[in-house]
């Protein structure tokens, strides 16, 4: 995550119809009697950030875990790069809401964990881990333990771990919900840089409307009981105006208002 200002990248936003990195096809997921997802289909364009946004209980985390291969759908399937998902794979990396760091391992070993599971030799994986620890701005903390870090720093470790395996798709499950407001804003700016500079597809689960509109190329609004995609929104004009101008762009404000008016009836 480079800490520089966002760069202009006019060719970054593509029209709908560009090829999909991840395709969700007719996914249904039942937990016993409860229907969590019903016949859901969704395309995730390559190299872009798609948010799954919706009220709690709308199944957005369930959908993300099905894409990750951590949960099996009751019916339907997920395709990643044209191949049907059978389980977790090296083409996808997951960032967890509660960070999911190993409390007994140092930052270095936590970041290197994904590489270790892939059988990368110790010296090589530590070199790669050190590079990504530097990238997320945690140089000097390699030998600290997670409990010695703040919430924001812990999530940077989680992010570095996901980046270090160099997966095509980054799946993020409410990654910033457990960190404070100011850290979250910094994270959101860093995430925009990341989407621009890394050639990766991002799938981002959030319950924050502002966050979704701020970071996304495409927003899928999910509605609950049973969960379905009600709307797909693609902001077009403010992405290239720089991180400081997004929040006062008229289109940004309109989209936030529109989403709220369509979601408000579902919030108790």
């Amino acid at each position: 995550m480079a800490m520089s200002q966002i760069k202009e990248a006019p060719n970054h936003i593509e029209v709908v119809g560009s090829d999909s990195a991840v395709s969700v096809r007719n996914i249904t997921k039942n937990y016993g009697e409860v229907e969590a997802l019903r016949d859901m289909s969704l395309e995730f364009p390559r190299g872009q950030l798609t948010s799954l946004l919706g009220p709690s209980g709308c199944g957005k985390t369930t959908l993300l875990k099905i894409i990750a291969g951590l949960l099996l759908p009751t019916s339907g399937y997920v395709e990643v790069n044209g191949k049907t998902v059978q389980g977790p794979g090296p083409d996808r990396a997951f960032v967890f809401q509660d960070f999911a760091l190993l409390p007994w391992a140092t930052v270095l070993n936590n970041v290197a964990f994904g590489l270790e599971m892939r059988g990368v030799a110790k010296s090589e994986r530590e070199a790669i881990a050190e590079k990504y620890i530097g990238d997320v701005g945690l140089s000097g903390f390699e030998h600290s333990y997670p409990h010695e870090l703040s919430g924001g720093m812990r999530q940077r470790v989680g992010l570095a771990r996901a980046l270090s395996v160099d997966a095509d798709d980054l799946l993020m499950d409410e990654p910033f919900s457990a960190v404070d407001e100011q850290t979250r804003r910094k994270f959101q700016e860093d995430l925009l840089n990341l989407v621009q500079n890394e050639n990766k597809t991002f799938i981002f689960v959030t319950h924050s409307i502002e966050e979704a509109v701020y970071v996304s190329d495409q927003i899928a609004i999910l509605l609950p009981r049973p969960s379905r995609v009600s709307e797909i929104i693609r902001p077009s004009s403010f992405r290239n105006k720089g991180v400081d101008n997004i929040r006062r762009d008229p289109e940004y404000l309109d989209i936030v208002d529109d989403i709220w008016s369509s979601l408000r009836t579902y919030v108790e």
Partner: peptide, 17 residues
């Protein structure tokens, strides 16, 4: 913590790992 197990799975940990 369940998410530690999911984390290990998502990075392809074998049962032995």
């Amino acid at each position: 913590n369940r998410s530690l197990i999911e984390m290990a799975n998502s990075f392809g940990a074998s049962p032995m790992d």
